[in-house]
Design a protein around this nucleic acid. Structure first.
Length: 872
RNA sequence: GGGGGAUUAGCUCAGUUGGCUAGAGCGUUUGACUGGCAGUCAAGAGGCCACCGGUUCGAAUCCGGUAUUCUCCA
């Protein structure tokens, strides 16, 4: 069976058992502050388990794109070193939301593995939960008994909380689980030692295949457990592993999922896989990482220096590092293997093949920039190597190299070892720990348990139709950020739009119906599908009805920008082409920002065209056509614009401005008629990454103000210049004139200095073979005097010159001594000037041959001249 | 979000503890050698040393702020 066949077999097996096949959620998570990437199949169903939302289908099956870069068994640095951990993987899962439980789950799992995949029963083991006293949960006898129907009792193992109790996070739904493990070792080894001894022992050949989670508890912030209202099943089986099990292979990488890429890499690197361990690790690292990169970028996440984008950057850099060190790639190479990779996912995850050129371009650009930091780091490392003491490279220097210049630590160690040096890793780790502590302290954030006031009602967003409403608080919790306490509250219904789809959250005010108390709503955010309102104090009476009002002005201006974004999107496609796809947007009351895929700079001419189209559409006063409950398939078939990396439900909201112009799936708020937007103006066009351009624009009052202000400035300039026929020409000629005059002034100044120099030269008198010049001069800055002295130095041998000046009632002293005198007589201008500056209540310094000083008292100048004369 | 760097000629970068009137290489312009190109040599142009403020007799250099950018950590 190929990977495609194994995947399909899973989906159709459960489809035949009454499960609905649902698409994978995007791998990059939006609307959940606790998570950057989908790290388990259950993420997209979190709301069902938490009881925030009711499941429409109680039996579901899917394959979910997942990414893990940290966790108890997943350290990025380990991936590729072993043969069975991955960053990106597909999690096959079947789900029951309050429907079937342990009996069916176990029976079907066994049937699929042994009858469809035909795995060898003699190599399978299962585990069940042994119970935990502190949690007050007993052993999972129920599962054990079910298993006994299918498998020998001595193949069933009881395991502890760490292995067989699944938790979503610190808090949230959880429950015991039952795992199926498989022994893939050669028969000779199996004969020597039973696989039973190796289950859960991190043996590379005795691996966990499938985890069946029986969700029945909710872990609260105080660590106690409470029962969930309904019992659920959440199972997860890594496609990469089961595929390997089906073929009894030694490594996940031996399956077609990875071998295609590895063969591709062999042909561009000229190296062979399977020859020696270090290069094999490099092959595996790259074959793994390229998948993570490809899917994240296809889902709209670009490499960057914060958050999820930073994780992506690290993955890419790790791949490049291995390619650089072990496969001799000194130039970008990752982008070359995207093409073949994307073929594997045609018909499964079409977002990748459809965007492969874009993905490759982003990766190539990122590779180029990393290679640049790599080469810069190499230079810097050379210096540290020179400074090494007793064959030990300073840990702090290495940390600086890593921290500030992004040079990978393992590469530093590698290079050091080549030169017979070692790196002071203790010093490095200490510095790293300090930095981690700093960041953690800053990001500290704590949420309390939800306090439930009202249980029976579901929250509903009414903000499309109402901007105010009478609401009740259903629950609230505290939120502590950097020692500051805030509160999050949830209503039964709400007119507040929660930040999503780039549109900022509403703000506003709550007024108590009974005591008239006012609570300000500072922000509105989404946690999955829950709408959370942020306030900084709780009402005295939280149980009363509140009249909720949103800040209308803010909402109005924001939705003008949002609707304009849709017009812009359509106009961009019209002018630039169909390859334009939204890559991100921000809509707030002041402006809009829109990122989209496009490979070259948008020219001024194109911008004008786009601006013109948008403004024409505004002028056409198109009425908003909003359809709320359109089945997804029908919407897509009608040619609506959907975004990659966005999660859509079965029914979607379609926003149309002109049937043949702009049709988008969108949850945001919009103007009722495009004429409300008023006017649309571009402010900026720039690049955010390879293949992604960013435009910024304003609308409505902001645009109006902008024009008024610009016109005012223009009029003022025209008035100042006496209303010339051609303003631009006039300014150009003024600038030119100015430049010429500056040049002329410079020349004049030089001439003046030349004259001063000539006068001074005639005053030079010889004393004992020293040419002495001691004078008070007129000057308006000390730099001029310096200039003259340097010129005299070139013209007069054995010069000893002391010039003093009164510049704006402040004394200035300068001394110039020819090199020969400095050398022969040991004279030192710096020392002399420090001495003499005392006479003018000042100080100064310089070098032996030239020094300057200033001071506060001009009356001391004659005395300085006397001292100077006395000196020679 | 927190820390650390960087910003000097069109490009890549030097510029020691503040003080030899801001440099190199590449590129560019002009000229010479050559039948032409390539090349070599010579000469020149090109800098608010990111911006704003402060310390100082004196700031590219030190301090504070802003902007941009790189990088590490969350």
């Amino acid at each position: 069976m190929t990977s495609k066949e194994v995947r399909n077999a899973f989906l159709s097996f459960f489809q035949n058992k009454g499960h609905k096949v649902v698409p994978s959620a995007p791998i990059v998570v939006k609307n959940d502050p606790t998570l950057m990437f989908t790290n388990a199949g259950m993420n997209q169903f979190k709301d069902y388990f938490l009881g925030n939302k009711e499941a429409k289908d109680v039996r579901v099956v899917d394959t979910q794109k997942c990414l893990r870069v940290s966790g108890k068994h997943n350290d990025l640095e380990e991936v590729g070193v072993d043969t069975y951990h991955h960053t990106m993987f597909e999690m096959l899962g079947n789900w029951s939301f309050g429907d079937y439980f342990k009996e069916d789950t176990i029976a079907w799992a066994w049937e699929l593995l042994t009858e469809v995949y035909k795995l060898d029963k003699n190599r399978l083991y299962v585990t069940v939960f042994e119970g935990d006293k502190t949690d007050g949960v007993g052993p999972d006898i129920e599962s054990e008994n079910i298993w006994k129907k299918y498998i020998d009792a001595d193949r069933i193992l009881r395991c502890d909380k760490q292995d067989n109790f699944w938790e979503m996070g610190e808090t949230g739904p959880c429950g015991s689980c039952s795992e199926i493990h498989m022994d893939l070792r050669p028969q000779a080894e199996v004969d020597k030692l039973s696989g039973k001894e190796l289950v859960n022992a991190d043996h590379p050949q005795v691996i966990e295949l499938w985890n069946l989670v029986f969700m029945e508890f909710n872990r609260k912030a105080d660590k106690s457990l409470e029962s969930l209202p309904a019992k659920h099943v959440d199972t997860g089986m890594g496609l990469e592993r089961v595929l390997r099990a089906v073929h009894m292979q030694h490594s996940n990488y031996d399956t077609d999922l990875f071998m295609d890429t590895i063969r591709d890499l062999e042909s561009i690197s000229g190296k062979t896989f399977g020859k020696n361990e270090p290069t094999d690790i490099a092959f595996r690292v790259i074959a793994d990482h390229i998948r993570a990169l490809a899917f994240c970028i296809a889902d709209g996440q670009l490499p960057s220096n914060t958050g999820a984008g930073y994780v992506l950057r690290r993955i890419l850099r790790r791949a490049v590092r291995y390619g650089y060190s072990f496969l001799d790639f000194k130039e970008p190479f990752l982008y070359k293997i995207i093409d073949k990779l994307s073929l594997q996912f045609e018909g499964v995850f079409n977002e990748l093949p459809e965007q492969k050129d874009f993905v490759a371009k982003v990766i190539e650009q990122e590779e180029i920039s990393f290679l640049r930091t790599l080469f810069a780091g190499l230079d810097r490392l050379d210096k540290s190597v020179e400074n090494a003491n007793e064959n030990l490279i300073n840990g702090e220097e290495v940390f600086e190299l890593y921290d500030t210049f992004g040079f990978p630590i393992d590469l530093t160690q590698l290079i050091a070892a080549e030169k017979g040096l070692t790196v002071d890793m203790d010093g490095f780790n200490k510095a790293l720990a300090e930095q981690k502590a700093r960041s953690k302290a800053d990001a500290a954030k704590e949420t309390g348990d939800w306090q439930v006031l009202l249980n029976d009602e579901k929250e509903e967003f009414v903000g499309y139709d109402y901007t105010d409403a009478n609401v009740r608080i259903t629950r609230y919790r505290t939120l502590t950020v950097k020692g500051k306490e805030k509160f999050q509250i949830v209503f039964n219904i709400t007119p507040f739009y929660a930040e999503s789809g780039g549109q900022v959250g509403d703000t506003g005010v709550l007024v108590g119906s009974e005591n008239q108390e006012k609570i300000k709503v500072l922000d509105t955010q989404k946690e999955n599908d829950l709408i959370v309102h942020v306030v900084d104090l709780l009402p005295d009476n939280a149980k009363q009805v509140f009249h909720a009002n949103i800040n209308l002005n803010k909402r109005d201006n924001t939705q003008k920008n949002h609707s304009a974004t849709h017009l812009l999107h359509a106009a961009l496609k019209e002018v630039l082409g169909d390859h334009v796809a939204q890559k991100g947007s921000l809509v707030d009351p002041k402006k809009m920002r829109f990122d989209f895929s496009h490979f070259t700079k948008v020219t001024d001419e194109e911008l004008h065209k786009i601006e013109h189209i948008v403004n024409t559409k505004i002028g056409e006063s198109i009425v908003l056509d909003e359809k709320r409950n359109v089945p997804y398939d029908i919407a897509i078939n009608s040619g609506v614009t959907a975004l990659f990396g966005e999660k859509y439900g079965d029914v979607v909201r379609v926003i149309t401005f002109g049937e043949d112009f702009s049709k988008e799936l969108c949850g945001g708020t919009h103007v009722a008629n495009t004429s409300e937007i008023g006017r649309f103006v571009f402010m900026h066009e720039s690049s955010v990454a390879a293949g992604v351009r960013r435009v910024e624009a304003i609308t409505g009052d902001e645009a109006e103000d902008y024009f008024v202000k610009k016109l005012d400035v223009l009029k003022e300039v025209e008035t100042l210049l006496g209303h010339p026929k051609d303003l631009v020409k006039q300014v150009q000629s003024l600038l030119k004139e100015n430049k010429e005059n500056t040049k002329k002034l410079e020349v004049l100044g030089q001439a003046q200095l030349g004259q001063l120099k000539n006068t001074l030269r005639s005053k030079v008198s010889a004393h004992n073979e020293v040419n002495v010049l001691i004078e008070q001069v007129e000057a308006d800055n000390a730099a001029g005097i310096k200039d003259v002295l340097f010129q005299l130095r070139n013209e007069v041998d054995n010069l000893f010159a002391v010039l003093v000046a009164n510049i704006n009632n402040k004394p200035s002293l300068s001394i110039m001594i020819s090199d020969s005198l400095v050398k022969d007589k040991g004279w030192n201008a710096g020392q002399l000037i420090r001495e003499w500056a005392k006479e003018v209540k000042g100080g100064g310094g310089g070098q032996p041959f030239f020094a300057q000083a200033g001071g506060a008292d001009v009356s001391g100048l004659p005395k300085v001249l006397e001292l100077a004369k006395a000196f020679v």
